[in-house]
């Protein structure tokens, strides 16, 4: 069974976004980190702020949102993003 992922303390995510700039800035109060995120990263984290998702669910909603194919390349990108976010303490897995 796939693990489900969710944002670590969703209320501690602070976003600054400019309409004419592609990348968003995120400050996470718990970790104290400020990061710049590409559109995929921004989408995934905001999704996980709202609800718990498995990697396949995430990939499907990303495909819908960006209107792209849900192929292996996207799956890899989602997987890699999750690993990065996990190492930064931004997302945690369903460990219960």
């Amino acid at each position: 069974m796939e693990r489900r992922w969710f944002a670590n303390a969703p209320e501690q995510f602070c976003w600054s976004i400019w309409p004419d700039e592609e990348e968003a800035v995120l400050f996470h109060q718990g970790s104290g980190d400020t990061l710049m995120l590409n559109p995929l990263g921004e989408f995934l984290l905001k999704r996980l702020q709202l609800e718990r998702q498995t990697p396949s669910e995430l990939m499907r909603s990303a495909a819908d949102y960006f209107e792209i194919d849900a192929n292996g390349e996207l799956a890899d990108a989602v997987h890699l993003s999750l690993l990065t976010f996990r190492s930064l303490g931004l997302v945690i897995s369903d460990s219960l």
Binding site: A9, Q29, G89, S95
Partner: peptide
């Protein structure tokens, strides 16, 4: 106040590392 948030976050990291 900040360190309370930081401690909670650190603990979430410990849980993530040790749950299995």
């Amino acid at each position: 106040q900040r360190s309370v948030l930081a401690v909670r976050w650190e603990i979430s990291q410990l849980q993530e590392a040790l749950y299995s």
